[in-house]
Amino acid sequence: EREDVLTVLVRLEQPFTSLDQDGPRTFRIKTNTLGASRKDEIRDTFAEQLGVPVESFQVNSGIDEAKSLIGQTARLEFKERTCSDRFCIDFTDSDIGLTGDDLERADPVVDSTGIGWSISIQFNDRGTDIFSDLTRRITGVETKRIAIILDDEQLLAPVARAWIRDGRSEITGNFTREEVRTRSIQLDSGRLPVPLKIIQESDVDALLGSESLKRSLMAGIVGLGLVMLFMVAYYRMAGLVAAVSLVVYSLIVLAIFKMIPITLTLSHIGGFILSIGMAVDANVLIFERMKEEVRIGRTLASSMEVGFNRAWPAIRDGNFSTLITCIVLIWFGDRLGGGLITGFAISLMIGVFASMFTAVVVSRNLLQLLAWIGLGRKISLFTPERLRRAGDAAAGGS
């Protein structure tokens, strides 16, 4: 019997991952994906050639799960829930006239903190008015919830934390990526008055995302390499110190992103790249101050110490100004639901703290190490300019 089943699968040209026999004339076939028309073909072929009926098709892949969710007719309702206590064990739901017809869209997004996942919802004009009135009344009330009912079953029951006036909101919680994707599909299906029927389907490999990732990584590596090359070419040994400091900075920031963890989106990458420029800028300020001190006759070790002390106020003020801007962006992004703004601000803030640490601690100690091992006597190794000390100029004039 097993050989007969294999023969039918080969004739159908149906790929499968495993074929298990659970009992007499009972088999379990696993495959990655299976379209609706393909299911009908397999059912008819097994019935005609083997006389074995196909009992059921169990959804195992994300593609089939999404198609199954989309194909169901659903009735979505938003109700005002009144709980008997703050734990909401006993409750009553009252109709407020807000249904899936008033919902324009529901999307899985990275939440406003850039750390987890949330569901972004948007209502039409009518839904915006009803939702605004609802959140105005129940915000801050511990015994009130927004019950989201799908086909007479509770889908979600979030708490209103702010008065939402524009009809745009995020439902947050300890969601995984798959959970927010599923909930978004269910919310979208609930706003459709009729079921969807799949007329045509096609599979597309995930080459675009892979290619974009490779190009983004290559662009980042090339950009970082060009910055390091310029620093080494112009500032020589000091530029080499800046390059090492920049590598340490990148490792620190990426380690922080991993520990939190933060899902890197375009906004996070933009903030990270901008903070790289700020880290280089801090090193440039320090090195230029060092050159000024060398010109007036100080030794390299003394120029390093004085240069750091004089460059620090400018580095501090510039970075603290950026941190204030980041705080303002986070505050507005959290209030207005701007996930992109908040993600950019958070990654930029982390990068600013890391850049201050590497510029003041890593670069300073590496330069002092170079001076200690004797390279401090060779001023030409630290700048391409032919610096004339003030004492040399005075001697030449006399």
Rank of each mutant, 00 (worst) to 15 (best):
residue 239 G to P: 10
residue 365 N to D: 01
residue 164 I to K: 06
residue 316 R to K: 09
residue 226 L to M: 09
residue 339 G to I: 00
residue 154 Q to Y: 15
residue 344 F to G: 03
residue 292 E to R: 04
residue 38 R to I: 07
residue 220 G to N: 05
residue 151 D to T: 10
residue 213 L to Q: 03
residue 293 E to C: 04
residue 378 K to S: 12
residue 379 I to N: 04
residue 377 R to V: 05
residue 272 F to R: 04
residue 338 G to D: 05
residue 282 A to E: 00
residue 317 D to T: 05
residue 68 S to M: 09
residue 95 D to S: 11
residue 158 P to C: 09
residue 148 I to F: 07
residue 109 V to E: 07
residue 206 A to L: 10
residue 28 R to E: 14
residue 370 L to H: 04
residue 362 V to M: 02
residue 246 L to A: 11
residue 73 T to A: 06
residue 109 V to C: 04
residue 281 D to W: 00
residue 35 G to P: 14
residue 125 D to Q: 14
residue 370 L to Q: 08
residue 29 I to V: 13
residue 10 V to C: 06
residue 316 R to P: 01
residue 27 F to I: 07
residue 368 Q to G: 13
residue 212 S to I: 06
residue 281 D to F: 05
residue 118 S to D: 06
residue 92 T to E: 15
residue 207 L to N: 15
residue 160 A to W: 09
residue 99 T to I: 03
residue 348 L to H: 02
residue 200 Q to N: 15
residue 86 R to G: 10
residue 136 R to Y: 12
residue 124 N to D: 15
residue 359 A to E: 01
residue 251 L to K: 05
residue 123 F to A: 07
residue 82 T to N: 07
residue 31 T to A: 08
residue 204 V to I: 14
residue 15 P to R: 06
residue 73 T to D: 07
residue 34 L to H: 04
residue 162 A to N: 15
residue 365 N to H: 07
residue 241 V to Y: 00
residue 154 Q to M: 14
residue 236 R to F: 00
residue 131 F to D: 10
residue 212 S to G: 11
residue 7 T to Y: 09
residue 248 V to D: 05
residue 20 D to K: 15
residue 122 Q to M: 12
residue 319 N to K: 04
residue 288 E to G: 08
residue 250 S to F: 02
residue 194 V to M: 14
residue 129 D to K: 15
residue 33 T to H: 09
residue 126 R to Q: 13
residue 257 F to E: 03
residue 146 I to Q: 09
residue 289 R to G: 01
residue 98 L to S: 03
residue 229 L to K: 01
residue 35 G to C: 08
residue 26 T to M: 11
residue 143 T to W: 00
residue 372 W to Q: 11
residue 261 P to I: 02
residue 342 T to G: 13
residue 141 V to R: 14
residue 374 G to L: 00
residue 292 E to H: 09
residue 394 A to L: 13
residue 310 R to T: 06
residue 349 M to F: 11
residue 132 S to T: 10
residue 202 S to I: 11
residue 56 S to C: 01
residue 378 K to P: 03
residue 88 C to E: 04
residue 144 K to A: 14
residue 390 A to M: 11
residue 177 R to N: 14
residue 358 T to H: 00
residue 254 L to D: 03
residue 240 L to W: 01
residue 55 E to M: 06
residue 341 I to P: 12
residue 225 G to A: 08
residue 166 D to Q: 11
